[in-house]
């Protein structure tokens, strides 16, 4: 289990969370590289279909932030 890395699909709102993720970069805050970010115009754009699709394609977690 120790080598296991989860795969986390992340939907980030362009206007807040995506900017916050950028800011984390500017501030050089380190975090595990398990996230794959999909930029969306608003977290309201994310439908249940995307979340299920992400799981179907092998994501271990889905994070919607906005």
């Amino acid at each position: 289990m120790t080598d296991w890395e989860p795969k986390i699909t992340t939907f980030l709102c362009n206007w807040c969370s995506y900017g916050a993720a950028d800011l984390a970069g500017v501030s050089r805050l380190q975090y595990p590289p398990d996230f794959r970010v999909i930029r969306v115009p608003c977290s309201g754009r994310v439908s249940p279909k995307f979340i299920l699709a992400a799981f179907r394609h092998g994501s271990d977690g889905v994070w919607v932030s906005g």
Binding site: A21, L23, A24, G25, Q30, P33, R36, V37
Partner: peptide, 24 residues
Amino acid sequence: NIRNQDSWVHKDEPDMATQKAKDL
């Protein structure tokens, strides 16, 4: 975004950061 959301935040894990960049 392979800088703010990749290289800058995974400084100590170049291999995984590279893999992430490829995925992105």
